[in-house]
Design a protein around this nucleic acid. Structure first.
Lengths: 227, 227
DNA sequence: CTTCGTTGATAGTATTACTTTCAATATTAA
DNA sequence: TTAATATTGAAAGTAATACTATCAACGAAG
C-alpha cells in the first residue's frame, strides 16, 4: 500500500486511468507490454487482448499510443521530481543536493527487483523511458503536444535541477542546456552500454553496476563544468 | 559537379541506389519527403508517387523505411568524417583539431542555402539527422541491425574524435562516452532551441546563429572536461 | 536477335489505427 | 425502488500501412 500517489492532470487523457480498474490495467499492463514489444510493435489491440478488454475501450482512455507514452513519461518524471524534493529537503549545500539528484536520476542505491508504486513495474517503466521517451518529442507533432502543455513535467524537472546549478555557480551560463544534456545522456549511455558498447566506456562487464558508472561519469562532468 | 562521392557498402541496401536514376531519385527525393513528413508519416507509397514510380520498385532498393533511414544517416556520418579528414589533415595540435571537428559537427561557417553534393539536399539531410537519426537505434531491432554492421559509420566517427580527445589528455577516461554525448547533444540542443526552448539557453532569438551557440556550448564543455 | 535485367502495372494480404453502433451491466440519484 | 446515467464489451467497418507476388513491356548487352 503506497501512501503517496502520482497524480497526472486531465489534459493527458480522455478519461482518468486512475479512476477505474480498467484504466489502471491499461497503464500497468501497458508499461509491461511496451517494455516487451517496444513502441513500434506495441498496439492498443495487443494491449486490449492482454487485459481481456477491447480496442475501443482502451481508446476511451487514451487517444493513441503516443499520448499513452507521454502520460507514462510524465508520470516517470513526476516520480523523479518527487524523489528529489523528498531526498534533498534537508540539504542546503547545492553541491550535496546535486549529488543526490544525480543519484536519483541514475537510479544508484536502488533496491533490486521489481519495485512497485501504484502497482506499476518501475523497472519496466525505466527501460521504457531509456529507450522510448525521446519519441514523445521527436515527431512532427511536437509543437502541438507542447502547446497543450504536455511536456510540463520534463521542463519542470529540468528547471529544478538547473536552479541547483545556478546556486553552485551563478555565473555559469548554460544550466538548462547542461541539464537537458545530462538527463538525455543518462538514458543514452545506459542504452549504449547495453546495445552499442563501442560508443561508451561504460560497460556491462565492469564490476560496478551500469547505474554507478553512469553516475560517476555524469557527476564528474557536471562538477568540472560548473565549477 | 562533385569530384568526390560518398560510397555506401552493399549491406545497406538490396540494390545500390547509386547505380540507377530511380535509385538516386529514391535517395534524393526520399530525403526531401522525410524532411517534409517526418519518419512516422513517411511511406514508400508516398515516395513512389512523388517520383512517379511504384511502391514495389522502391522496395527493390530498400527493405523498409528504417533501412533507408540507416542508409541516409550512414551517408551523413561518412560525409562528416570525410570533412574532418580533409579539414584536419594539416593540423597537428589536437586542441586545434578538435575545434575544427566541432565546427564541422555543428555546421558552423557553412554557406547558407541549399548545399548540394551528389545532388542531395544537405540542409534537409541535416534536419533529418537532427530529428530522426536516434530512431535508427531506439528500436527492438538494434541488436540485429548492429550485428549486420550497419552502425559502423557512427562508431567510426565517434572513435576518430575520441582519439583526438585521448591525444589532448591521455588520462581522460571517458573519451567515447563524452563524444557520443556531445554528438547527440549537438542534435538535441538544436532541436530543443527550435521546439522546446525552455530546455536550453540556446535560442533562435539570439543574434548569433543556433549553430554558433551550439558550437560554443559544446566546445567550452569539452575543453573544460578534457583538460 | 535473343536474352537479361529493370521497371511499371496490377492485385492481393495481413495488420494498424482508428470510429461507430448497440446491447448488457453496473452505479447513482430521485 | 425505479429511473436515469455511465461504463464496458461485442461486433463491424474504414482507410491506410507494410509489405509480396505476378506479369508484361522495355532497353541494353552479348
Amino acid at each position: 500500500m503506497s501512501v503517496i500517489s502520482i497524480v497526472i492532470g486531465e489534459k493527458y487523457y480522455n478519461k482518468d486511468p486512475q479512476s477505474s480498474e480498467l484504466g489502471r490495467n491499461i497503464v500497468s499492463i501497458g508499461i509491461e507490454l511496451l517494455d516487451e514489444l517496444g513502441f513500434e510493435q506495441f498496439t492498443f489491440k495487443k494491449l486490449a487482448e492482454r487485459i481481456n478488454s477491447t480496442e475501443a475501450s482502451v481508446y476511451r482512455y487514451f487517444d493513441n499510443k503516443l499520448k499513452l507514452l507521454v502520460y507514462l513519461t510524465t508520470w516517470y518524471w513526476a516520480w523523479i521530481e518527487y524523489l528529489i524534493d523528498f531526498k534533498t529537503y534537508h540539504i542546503s549545500d547545492p553541491e550535496e543536493k546535486l549529488k543526490v539528484v544525480l543519484k536519483i536520476v541514475c537510479h544508484v542505491d536502488e533496491s533490486r527487483g521489481a519495485i512497485n508504486l501504484d502497482g506499476l513495474n518501475l523497472g519496466a517503466l525505466r527501460r521504457i523511458v531509456d529507450t522510448e521517451s525521446d519519441k514523445t518529442y521527436l515527431t512532427k507533432q511536437v509543437d502541438e503536444i507542447n502547446s497543450e502543455g504536455l511536456f510540463k513535467g520534463y521542463k519542470s524537472l529540468c528547471h529544478k535541477i538547473a536552479l541547483i546549478i545556478s546556486e553552485m555557480n551563478p555565473k555559469y551560463v548554460y544550466p538548462h542546456a547542461l541539464i537537458s544534456t545530462i538527463l538525455e545522456a543518462s538514458h543514452q549511455q545506459t542504452f549504449f552500454a547495453q546495445h552499442l558498447p563501442s560508443l561508451t566506456e561504460i560497460s556491462v562487464n565492469d564490476e560496478r553496476s551500469i547505474e554507478n558508472q553512469v553516475y560517476d561519469f555524469l557527476l564528474q562532468s557536471v562538477i568540472k563544468l560548473v565549477k
